[in-house]
């Protein structure tokens, strides 16, 4: 019973959504189901948020390893919740846009969340460098091709690349590094991406059919269908 209900819901909704693509009166059904999903997901947040608070309170209570971080987490959680719900400092009052300039919520966003997010994202610059140092080595023929392409793209994205091949006449402009970089992105890269995308599309079809037919049940913890 515990498995039959989710499997039935999946089979019915999956089939109806596939069929609705071909039946005009049902064509909005996809949107409706997305909406249902969003509503359920919002309620599920109580589970997630509640879990987060419970785990960190527990950690704090029992003074487990690294309990200091839990104070920061809990403070951040409740601080944002309160100033967002009560719209503290919002010039428009309780009925206004929560992100109005001047509200505590917006200020926290601008001066805390914004720099924190940017910092995490900025780590990419460092990691790209260390990953490419390790990965781009001419170990075999394919790796050498990859290395060459990487060189051209990297140079092509800088004014340095423009300078390097500025002497190439206009009639041979394809050989200029920036244009060569665009060509790599536009032709070989594109062909490869499309092949991957076609494969993904077919993979999704086959996986969805397995799920709808109830053959794939490993996510329910079963080995056999």
């Amino acid at each position: 019973m515990r498995r039959a209900i989710p499997l039935t819901i999946l089979a019915v909704v999956g089939t109806v959504l596939i069929v609705s693509v071909f039946l005009p009166p049902l064509e909005n059904l996809g949107e409706d189901f997305t909406l249902f999903f969003d509503i359920i997901a919002v309620f599920a947040f109580f589970l997630g948020g509640g879990n987060l608070v419970r785990i960190h309170f527990n950690k704090l209570w029992r003074k487990r390893k690294d309990w200091g971080f839990s104070i920061v987490t809990l403070f951040g959680f409740f601080f944002m919740l309160v100033i967002g719900l009560l719209k503290i400092g919002n010039p428009g009052g309780i009925g206004a846009d929560p992100t109005a300039e001047g509200s505590w919520f917006q200020e926290t966003f601008n001066y805390v969340i914004n720099p924190l997010q940017s910092t995490m994202y900025a780590l990419l610059a460092f990691f790209v460098a260390s990953a490419s140092y390790r990965a781009f080595r001419a170990k075999n023929r394919e790796a050498t091709l990859l290395l060459l392409a990487a060189f051209i793209i990297l140079l092509g994205r800088t004014p340095f690349g423009v300078m390097l091949t500025a002497w190439v006449p206009e009639s041979w402009s394809i050989a200029q590094i920036p244009n060569l970089a665009v060509w790599i992105m536009n032709s070989p890269n594109l062909a490869g991406q499309r092949a991957i995308i076609i494969g993904i599309g077919l993979g999704v079809v086959s996986m969805s059919l397995r799920l709808i037919l109830g053959i794939e049940r490993s996510y329910l913890g079963e080995d056999r269908g």
């Binding site: 490419s132 140092y133 990487a150």
Partner: peptide, 10 residues
């Protein structure tokens, strides 16, 4: 500059 550094490290 970052690109040049990355290219050099490669």
């Amino acid at each position: 500059l970052a690109h040049i550094v990355i290219i050099s490290f490669i």
